[in-house]
Design a protein around this nucleic acid. Structure first.
Lengths: 340, 340
DNA sequence: TTGTACGCGTTATCAA
DNA sequence: TTGATAACGCGTACAA
């Protein structure tokens, strides 16, 4: 209903064969300049637009990249998406978006949906529940170019983009130690994710290297529900052995900490210092302003897109070799970790 | 390359005709339960997935909704997108994302791209430059279901979703007046957009109704570049007739105001009160916390998607009639507008 | 209940 | 330089 005129109709209008018109529109060397001009002007006049499905069916290409994210669009994923979109649009690629909502079953469904060629390539960040990788493996085995970013699946031999999670967490922890924190706690979401593990490892090592005894109580495991996170954090802050320094592995736990803090009598940074992974542009406007580890999200997005498009357009010159590309994060020190 | 087995191959494997297999998979009444079962289990075993392009070509449907946004994904658009994605996924629809980057030429290109059936329906928010509506009109004339949200094009006779911009701006301004502000300024981006006009009108009327003389200097026109906005605002704050109350029509101008404020000696809310349209979840954590008018972004998204999908699945029962549906915003009063 | 034949709109191969 | 024809994978009218 919404579709316009077809190639055949356009050809009829021009009294030419469909194949000739097709070639003219595709700027084939076999067609005379004169007919090319005629065809193009008529195509514009009649507002002809090639049917993308017929073309995709014929060429076995969709000119589409799919991006799969694991949760509601936060500042990090928004920037990644912007980065991918920018490059995709530049190269005439379309962008499909899917959200797995941290649900592995949904992830499996979506991945299976993409098994049939709807997208030429995929950029994705896995669910925190993704333990079984078979669906991802299948995708990769089919030869569908796939890149992981941030939350990567290390079992799939392809290119992955992450930031220096270990080093950033190490530095962040060290920063708190330098700021004279004596009891530091690490807030994290999920142990299964590689990024969580790396950040935890960075934290652990920094603690150990400072000669502090590592203790399981120095890690607080949170969930995806904001309210219960706030309560959990509040409880910790009101407890006898409350921390005087906190490293949060994701943005939303930092925000939850601010909320929890409001319900206590503690003051930041005096009683408590906080540093967090975060891509929010307004970290500097928080009360107090938040010291952050900012991931190069937009660049991660554009690098993913660039590499995928290279692979798609010159499959023999580029390969998504099994490697992890690290783009460093940047620590910005603000009031939340100031010496009192 | 990435595509799997075809219907024909599946049929051969089963020693059945392709049409039989097709009907079995589509649960046709003409097929016996026995063969249906056989077909389905074999399809699963061989990992058969219908080629979406062949199907789209045949059925002239893409099961895809396109969403066009005018700028980098901020908290408002992120929530709208989440809302649309949720509903789309629930109904088996795919989601294409395009960003016009406030560029009308890009908007025209993208819209033309969608003229050929790649998407069954469109939800969009126009560019601030969109003065000529011919490309949108063409889309609508072709019968492609299109809905506008937030930044609407009033010339296209279809359904539009907005919030009560006029009333919210009126109330916001009234709130500042009640808080004893004597000189209030309205920060806005672009006069051409309907939402800007409505918000401006709400501001103007509230000022006039309070018996204050309206004056062009009470509106500050900003642009899309953050740094120059900050400078412009800083200049105003340092000028002789600086305002003691500000209403910002979009989130980013509020953030710019916080930044500008840092470069002055003024204190908020003592010297200056601020209220802004914003969907940022951390407005309450800013320093000072920001009084906001929050748009029902997620609901706008899901309502758009619901209506579009209804129209697509039951075209005779639903129509995108020419109307503006208003979902009210919510004002949350915080520190930035407190009485000193 | 199942099979045969065709067409959706392209592009590529071959022939003219 | 252009035209006729086949094929991509699917769904459906018609035949069996």
């Amino acid at each position: 209903m919404a579709s316009g005129i077809s190639l055949k109709e356009l050809a009829a209008e021009l009294k030419l064969a469909p194949s000739t018109v097709s070639r003219a529109l595709n700027d084939s060397y076999e067609i005379s300049e004169a007919t090319k001009k005629k065809v193009i002007s008529m195509a514009e006049k009649l507002n002809y637009h090639a049917n993308p499905f017929a073309r995709s069916l014929r060429e076995n290409k969709s000119k589409t990249i799919a991006i799969i994210i694991p949760e509601r669009i936060n500042s990090f994923f928004a920037q990644v998406m912007d980065g991918i979109e920018e490059i995709a649009q530049e190269h005439g690629y379309h962008l499909l978006i899917y959200n797995t909502h941290e649900d592995m079953e949904r992830e499996r469904k979506i991945v299976n949906l993409l098994l049939n060629g709807r997208a030429d390539a995929i950029a994705m960040s896995v669910t925190s529940q993704t333990s079984d990788n078979s669906h991802l493996k299948k995708l990769h085995d089919r030869g569908l170019p796939i890149i992981f970013f941030d939350r990567i699946s290390s079992e799939i031999p392809t290119t992955k983009f992450i930031t220096n999670d270990y080093e950033s967490a190490y530095e962040a922890t060290q920063h708190l130690i330098n700021q004279n924190c004596k009891k530091i706690t690490f807030f994290t979401l999920c142990v299964d994710l590689s990024i969580s593990k790396e950040r935890q490892r960075g934290f652990n090592d920094a603690i150990a290297d400072a000669g502090i005894e590592l203790d399981p109580s120095m890690t607080l495991y949170c969930g995806h529900d904001e309210q219960s996170n706030i309560e959990k954090i509040q409880e910790l802050l009101n407890s006898a052995n409350r921390p005087d320094g906190i490293v949060t592995s994701v943005e939303k736990l930092a925000f939850a900490t601010y909320q929890a803090l409001k319900r206590t009598n503690l003051r930041m940074p005096n009683d408590l210092k906080l540093i967090s992974f975060s891509n929010s542009s307004i970290a500097g406007l928080l009360n107090p302003s938040l010291t952050t580890i900012t991931q190069p999200a937009s660049m991660i997005g554009s690098e993913c897109a660039k590499l995928l498009i290279k692979k798609l357009t010159k499959p023999n010159h580029y390969d998504l070799i099994d490697q992890v590309i690290t783009i460093p994060s940047k620590i910005t020190i603000r009031e939340s970790t100031c010496q009192e």
